[in-house]
Design a protein around this nucleic acid. Structure first.
Length: 414
DNA sequence: TGTCCACTGGAAGGGAGGGCTT
DNA sequence: AAGCCCTCCCTTCCAGTGGACA
């Protein structure tokens, strides 16, 4: 018999009863717990679609992991069920778009449009057409027969921040031009404030109905975890306190069900890898640390090389004992590193933006501070673990020349 | 009280790179 | 091939600014 490096993992008994995907946030259970009120509210609005009328537009607010996306997808499934059963009076098309993935006007219109184009050759290409043309095709294809189109724009705030509200304006106005079809929008956002950016006309049209998803409390999280755990594990695999602990940890932070589920899944995976028979509190604590570090590492690993260089500069300064830096400091270190690696150098203005991006990602903390005559600038410091992060950055092949490189205080003063 | 530093962050625009149309 | 369009990444320009210091 041949042996391989995988053998010892392959024959390890699995802790999971079946698919571990039931613990992933993308899994939509048959019954969503503790969201009855919101589901009923939205369902009562959308029900008009099944009667052939245009439902009001809806804005859904709530922090991450409060079940907004799950609810939207769940309702999509339910509508499909009704349509299949043939009890609807009208054709209803439910389009779900995640604006974090599709974040341009063109992209959103293309995505919606292609739902109504069966012939592959007629499809709207990912780029190349004018937006106006895409809009016209979309309009024509949608309006061929009477139907109600419900477009869900998940993370719509991301879209508005990036691309403005033109597209929302057109989509909310398109009904005026339709003869047969009707469109209604569901915007999902975790940021209440983004509506301030909208043109007043768009704002009032978009937010006919507002629905807020509150964070889950510990008890609710516990129910949700229990529901999934029953699907994922056999009895006796989870120590009694494990679910309560996962629920308590996340309820304490933000009431985020997504993270609570991740925590449970990773804890179980750690137990499995250790060939333990039971998932215990210790596994949960380990999982918590692992998830936090993994998030940082993944975020840093996928950074563009210019941002890596900037972050590396900040970390190297920290290593040399310079914890707090100004934009000027960061830029001069950045220039040293550019010269060392031979990479092209971007302007200070651009670096300011990249620093702000790193700040938004939580990788560094940067706040504007005035030093009086010393000028007004950002005060920047890293908020990720020094050595681990540095190691990840230096794995980038373009930054190889920096492997043994260190900076000292004089260099930052250049 | 006014000055002045070292930026901040908005605006406008360029150009490369993707792709389509004619 | 030439002429479009859109997005992304970047530059240049510049008015604006919080607060220590004279």
């Amino acid at each position: 018999m041949t042996t391989s490096v995988f053998d010892k993992y392959m024959d390890a008994p699995s802790i999971f009863k079946r698919d571990r995907d039931v613990l992933r946030p993308s899994y939509i259970p048959d019954k969503l717990l503790h969201r009855d009120e919101q589901i009923n509210q939205i369902a009562s609005i959308l029900a008009t679609a099944l009667k052939g009328e245009r439902p009001s537009n809806i804005l859904i607010f709530g922090k991450t992991g409060t079940g907004k996306t799950a609810t939207a997808k769940y309702l999509g499934k339910e509508i499909t069920k009704v349509l299949k059963a043939g009890s609807a009076f009208q054709e209803v098309v439910y389009v779900y778009i995640n604006c974090e993935v599709v974040d341009t006007q063109y992209g959103v219109l293309q995505n919606i449009g292609n739902r109504f184009i069966d012939n592959f050759n007629e499809r709207i290409p990912p780029t190349g057409w004018s937006t106006e043309r895409v809009y016209n095709i979309l309009w024509k294809k949608m309006d061929t027969s009477p139907k109600v189109v419900i477009v869900v724009l998940d993370e719509v705030d991301k879209f508005v921040y990036k691309s403005g509200d033109d597209m929302l304006y057109h989509l909310t106005k398109i009904n005026d031009d339709f003869e047969n079809a009707k469109i209604s929008l569901i915007g999902i956002s975790n940021d209440m404030k983004f509506t301030e950016l909208l043109d007043p006309r768009v704002r009032s049209r978009l937010s006919d109905e507002k629905i807020v998803f509150p964070p889950y409390d510990a008890g609710q999280l516990k129910d949700i975890l229990k529901q999934r755990a029953e699907l994922a594990f056999d009895n006796g695999i989870l120590a009694d306190e494990v679910i309560s602990l996962c629920a308590a940890v996340e309820a304490h932070e933000q009431g985020d069900a997504r993270r609570a589920l991740d925590l449970l899944r990773v804890a179980a995976e750690i137990a499995e890898r250790n060939r333990d028979q039971e998932v215990t509190e210790q596994h949960v604590y380990k999982a918590k640390n692992k998830i936090e570090l993994d998030c940082v590492i993944e975020a840093v690993r996928t950074l563009p090389v210019q941002s890596k260089l900037i972050l590396l500069g900040i970390l190297m300064n920290e290593e040399a004992g310079q914890i707090k830096l100004t934009t000027g400091d960061v830029y001069s270190t950045y220039r040293i590193l550019c010269r060392k690696t031979g990479l092209s150098m971007v302007s200070q203005r651009r670096v300011t933006d990249l620093i702000s991006e790193l700040d938004m990602m939580g990788i560094v903390s940067a706040r504007v501070k005035s030093f009086g005559r010393g000028g007004r600038t950002k005060e920047i410091m890293a908020s990720v673990p020094l050595m681990e992060t540095k190691r990840v950055i230096l794995k980038d092949s373009m930054l190889e020349p920096l492997n043994e490189f260190k900076i000292n205080k004089q260099m930052t003063l250049l």
